[in-house]
Design a protein around this nucleic acid. Structure first.
Lengths: 178, 178
DNA sequence: AACGGGCATTAACCCAGGTTAACAATGAAT
DNA sequence: ATTCATTGTTAACCTGGGTTAATGCCCGTT
């Protein structure tokens, strides 16, 4: 009855174990990398770098979560973001094409994939809502409330770049509202 | 070979035809509405209203696209946004639970659902990127470039609220950059 | 023709956040 | 212990966008 057991089985059967040290890069913006990465231990950050050099953090990926560049996979284009280890991390790597093939053959697996994609879409909609409707201060408060397990594993600067403000601005927000 | 034909078939077989006039509401934030709506003709807007009364537009939904509140469906909670017709619209309405049931029974349909969810996730990631990394002016330019077919069907105020700025600010941006 | 409502523009004022820079604190490397 | 790099704080100044309000335009209604 546990969810996603077919996906988990696929990962353990076909996934390739990989280790990364703190600060080590998994892939870079522009690379062609059609894999999904499942985090067994550790912490990753996915981030964009603009043409002017500004870094913006798309997401943090902790144990039990997976990530990969949909753009690279679906559009056969380069990755739209970079992926780096914030802590020493154990990953399971799987070619996305393999997942697609297997899901086309196995209905239970396809159902697991639907669950994963639904969860992803909802997470992204949530974030869209926060940028659209909330102030930087409100986004900060929500982050504290919803990801308390992350706050002592990331720097304040990275939290700022995840929230869409500069590190200086986040320092001011903290002072302002405790 | 055409994509999503199973989903299309399901819609025509089980979908209920509904007509809405301009300005008519399909559902409201907080309502319990577990349907997905496929737009045959017309144009919808999905929007949040904050506790202070500020309206923020989540998305415009034109012919050939579908929408529904994932939050209402997956979490059995109220809709997180409101849906209204910007033009007289013909919709096909389907209980999401029906889609879930049928997808659990039909593997080809499940594959169609995966395609839809992938496309949705990528659209939302794109929007996340724009809010995270681009200025209001850059978001405006991109909107012009990527949705030219919409600009003469929506008001400038609605475009502003979609881009995350006030109508006054968008008027200034237009003046600034042509 | 006259009225009234929504929409876009513009101006004036204010504020949150960006930018730059100085400074302190921490911590890893020699 | 010293050095160097990274991080966080604070200050000064600037700018983009929010707010409010006035004005004019367009359009649909009567």
């Amino acid at each position: 009855m546990n969810t996603d057991n077919h996906l988990a089985k696929l990962l353990t059967m076909y996934g390739q174990q990989q280790s990364f040290q703190r600060h080590e890069s998994i892939f870079c913006q522009g690379d062609d990398d059609g894999h999904i990465y499942f985090v067994q231990t550790g912490l990753l950050k996915a981030y964009y770098v603009s043409s002017e050099g500004k870094e913006s953090i798309k997401s943090f990926v902790a144990e039990g979560n997976m990530i990969g560049s949909l753009n690279s996979v679906v559009n056969q284009a380069g990755c739209s973001f970079s992926l780096v280890a914030l802590e020493a991390s154990q990953l399971l790597r799987l070619p996305f094409s393999l997942l697609v093939d297997k899901a086309a053959q196995s209905h239970p697996l396809a159902n697991d994939v639907i669950q994963q994609l639904l969860a992803l879409a909802m997470k992204k909609e949530q974030r869209e809502f926060e940028f659209l409707s909330l102030s930087a201060e409100q986004r900060y408060q929500r982050f504290l409330a919803q990801a308390p397990q992350l706050i002592d594993r990331i720097t304040q600067s990275d939290m700022a770049r995840y929230l869409g403000v500069t590190p200086v601005a986040l320092s001011r927000i903290k002072k302002r509202c405790g």
